[in-house]
């Protein structure tokens, strides 16, 4: 049994950020994640295919930020590795990480869809 893709404690603390009578912050943040992240993953994949380490690093870095904020720890860890590889300029090891990134994103997306209904 795999660990949940999203940390429930983090999700709970996001839920608590909503001021009384205002739109749900958790929903807003998760929706933003769904709107923003696939494009960045696509950019990372394109950069990786083109051997552009600088662009891989940039995309991985911002993805890492997004993943961290919603408690997607496994996704965060993959992005962190890609960030480091991009920084070092050696993309050979990214071979397995790019598909892993897509697979983990799919898990996160499924859990988000359950949460926001």
């Amino acid at each position: 049994m795999m660990a949940p893709a999203l940390d429930t404690a983090v999700i709970e603390s996001l839920r608590q950020l909503t001021p009384p009578g205002e739109p749900d912050v958790l929903k807003e943040v998760l929706q933003l994640f769904l709107d923003d992240v696939p494009g960045r993953i696509e950019r990372l994949r394109t950069a990786w295919q083109g051997g552009n380490a600088v662009e891989v690093q940039r995309a991985a870095h911002s993805l890492k930020g997004s993943a961290g904020n919603i408690g997607a720890h496994a996704l965060h860890a993959i992005c962190h590795q890609l960030d480091e590889l991009g920084r070092s300029g050696d993309l050979a090891e990214a071979e397995d990480l790019v598909p892993a990134l897509a697979a983990e994103y799919a898990r996160v997306e499924a859990e988000i869809l359950l949460l926001i209904g």
Partner: peptide, 17 residues
């Protein structure tokens, strides 16, 4: 100031609260 919208929104919501 953050180019990444998820962080920006979360940090903004924390400060607003």
């Amino acid at each position: 100031a953050d180019d990444e919208p998820v962080s920006r929104t979360v940090v903004g919501a924390m400060l607003k609260k």
